[in-house]
Amino acid sequence: MVSGKKTKATRSSVAAARSSVVASKPKPWGTIIAVIAVLGLAGGVFGYAYSQIHANNVKEAALAKWKPSDTNKDPSTQLAGIVIKEYKGSRHVEPTQRVAYDQTPAFGGPHDSQWADCTGVVYDKAVRTENMVHGLEHGAVWIAYNPDQVKDDALNKLKAKAEGQQYTMLSPFPGLDKPISLQSWGHQLKVDNADDERIDQFISSLRRNPNTYPEVGASCENSQFLANPAPFVAEKPGADAVPMDGGKDESKTEGQQPNMSTPPPSGSASTPPSS
């Protein structure tokens, strides 16, 4: 035991002595520090560049998810709670007529010939749905809010998303069943508060998405309407309202099947649609 220990100690002291003889140099601290410093600096620069690019890429990827493209024609299908219905671009109604919309707020179907101006407009008062729907047909997103539930800060957040932003409109919608409801042609999403990230995702996915609205290239400008917006009508539409399919009165159908505008042979006018 004792001898063993001694041997070890001797060996190590020999080794130490040897190394101090063979390689006995004082460590080149200057060089070591310089090398570490240069490497550290290079690593730092690279790390910074990488983290910036990486953060940017992550942001891009997050955005791309909600960006319409050839391979992702309607990104809104990934949104939790989205309601999608297919509506054809269509029939115009008179300023005095109502449409029996199948959704509240409506997001497709027959509409007034005057589209609500959607050049980034904040409507302070509630607007007639028949006009708003026409704005949707031109590619706009309509942000509707319940004026009893969305005020002050929350309302300002919505205004920032709409005011001056082309193809966007914001208006109160009295009696709305949720605080906020987003509409684009054939699409709707209801959310509870203005901070919900799905609001921006909905806008990114659907505003002027050429795959989801009927009249690509249509203008949002309508200063005539803006000067005097048609007011919201709270009463439910009556029996005389235009139905969602545009009704059987083909003479009022704009641009569709012009041949049908001639009066049908007697008897067939009241024939119910075959089912």
Binding site: V35, V38, L39, A42, G43, F46, Y48, A49, Y50, Q52
Partner: peptide, 15 residues
């Protein structure tokens, strides 16, 4: 170390 540093800087510039 020098080569590594040059590569890192080059990569950073490239990015």
């Amino acid at each position: 170390a020098a080569v590594l540093a040059v590569l890192l800087l080059g990569a950073a510039i490239g990015l």
